[in-house]
Nucleic acid binder design. Structure first.
Lengths: 152, 152
DNA sequence: CGCGCTATTGGGAGTGCCTTGCATTAGTGG
DNA sequence: CCACTAATGCAAGGCACTCCCAATAGCGCG
């Protein structure tokens, strides 16, 4: 699957690249590893370990272990969108951040730069270095916010 | 606007007040209930159910159930500060919000108004109604941010 | 290509944080 | 002080991982 031309350049353009990177780091390219990576490449939204395990028919344990090593080697990361399991995404295809709706579960994807003004404001007001990449902002999406306002 | 009977605003200054409010709502004032409430009044930071259970020597189950009913009746709420158990706080004594440090666990307490500029910015940029009250902003406190910068 | 070294795997058990079910206990209004 | 039923204690269950270990299978080497 080719990347759209406007997608930022990245370290791991495709599966083969990523696998090569792993091999170079002394990691073995096993079938489960490859399948997990494939699942991440195929996903357009963050996915749970459970989801991957079901899809590619792997032991959940193995999926978690692979996600962990992918994270450790900078190929993937996970976010906590409210309650529920952690969700995993590939790194390197243009960094994404997320806003999630507590009510309907909608996930809005943003570029890192889009959240910079928020991070800047938090830093400037409270000195905290907000890292929404791991614990994103949770709230109500425009639709749910409106619906709730109408109901009151 | 009209007061919805199932979401009344409870105002209570102390334990006796809170217990009276519960009684008025048809809830029984039992020893475990009173102990959980006392623990919340005593805590100056958000506390876990486990913490309460240990302190007042109650069944964890009972603590969870009581926290749930206190939440349901608007006397308490909980926040998720990064990983780890949910942490409970009383409401009605001046609303607090939190900023937590992913590295050292430090929790900075703020008034709701202090976070309003951030919420406003999120709304104005993305239309999301950020609700940091349930999933607060997680990041690095000034100390940890500096330490990390120095290390790089 | 075969061999050996060891990273990785499957599967099972364990942990943390709750949630549910149920028989028993104890607040409360009458 | 009685009856009614909310609330409790205890046991079990559930979700999201995390750990352990014997068996397997990549990978470098000859």
């Amino acid at each position: 699957m080719t990347l759209s031309p406007d997608t930022p350049r990245l370290a791991f353009a495709d599966l083969a690249d990523a696998l090569e990177a792993l091999r170079q780091r002394g990691l073995r390219v096993t079938t489960p590893r490859r399948l997990v990576l494939e699942a991440l490449f195929a996903a357009e939204v963050p996915v749970s370990a459970e989801h991957i395990a079901q899809n590619v028919n792997l032991e959940l344990t193995s999926v978690y272990r692979n996600l962990e090593t992918l994270e450790h080697h900078g190929l993937a990361r996970h976010v906590h969108l409210g309650h529920g399991p952690g969700l995993y995404v590939l790194i390197g295809r243009g960094e994404r951040e997320f806003l999630s709706c507590e009510r309907c579960g909608a996930v809005r994807s943003l570029t890192t730069e889009q959240l910079d003004p928020i991070r800047d404001r938090v830093r400037e007001l409270y000195g905290y270095e907000a890292r929404f990449s791991h614990f994103p902002i949770v709230g109500l999406c425009p639709d749910c916010a409106q619906r709730r306002e109408a109901a009151s």
